Simulated assay, not measured.
Amino acid sequence: MSRRGTAEKRTAKSDPIFRNRLVNMVVNRIMKDGKKSLAYQILYRAVKKIQQKTETNPLLVLRQAIRRE
């Protein structure tokens, strides 16, 4: 048992463009070797393609894909 205090839970920050925590959490999962800017580029390109093909809100599609609804 550690003698130090327990760490406080931190909430995930939101991403700079969509202001959504889910997007930031997905970016953190995509990220490899600490290259967060590359992960953001990959996700934003994918979101742009979703927007063009479905012509709906891409964040709703992303949420549905994660929840598998």
Rank of each mutant, 00 (worst) to 15 (best):
M1Q: 10
M1R: 14
S2M: 09
S2V: 10
S2D: 10
R3T: 12
R4W: 11
R4P: 00
R4F: 08
G5T: 14
T6P: 05
T6V: 07
T6M: 04
E8G: 03
E8V: 10
K9R: 13
K9D: 07
K9C: 05
A12F: 08
A12Y: 05
A12H: 03
K13S: 08
S14I: 02
S14Q: 06
S14H: 01
D15T: 03
P16I: 06
P16W: 00
P16F: 04
I17N: 01
I17M: 03
I17T: 12
F18G: 03
F18E: 12
R19Q: 09
N20A: 02
N20F: 00
R21T: 15
L22E: 08
L22P: 10
N24I: 01
N24K: 05
M25V: 14
V27M: 02
N28E: 13
R29N: 13
R29Y: 02
R29V: 14
R29E: 13
R29D: 14
I30E: 01
M31C: 13
K32P: 03
K32G: 02
K32N: 07
D33G: 03
D33R: 12
D33Y: 06
K35M: 15
K35T: 06
K35N: 13
K35D: 15
K36T: 11
S37N: 13
S37T: 11
L38V: 15
L38G: 03
A39P: 09
A39H: 06
Y40G: 01
Y40W: 08
Y40H: 15
Q41I: 07
Q41Y: 06
I42W: 07
I42F: 08
I42Q: 11
L43W: 06
L43V: 10
L43S: 07
Y44F: 11
R45N: 14
A46H: 09
A46D: 11
V47W: 00
V47P: 00
V47L: 15
K48N: 12
K48C: 13
K49Q: 14
K49N: 13
K49A: 14
I50K: 01
Q51T: 15
Q51A: 11
Q51S: 10
Q51E: 15
Q52N: 12
Q52M: 09
Q52C: 02
K53M: 12
T54G: 00
T54C: 09
T56F: 09
T56M: 11
T56Q: 14
T56V: 15
T56H: 08
T56R: 14
N57K: 09
P58Q: 03
P58D: 04
P58L: 00
P58N: 04
L59P: 04
L59M: 06
L60F: 11
V61H: 10
V61G: 00
L62C: 04
R63H: 11
Q64N: 11
Q64S: 04
Q64Y: 05
I66Q: 04
I66T: 06
R68F: 10
E69K: 08
E69H: 08
E69D: 07
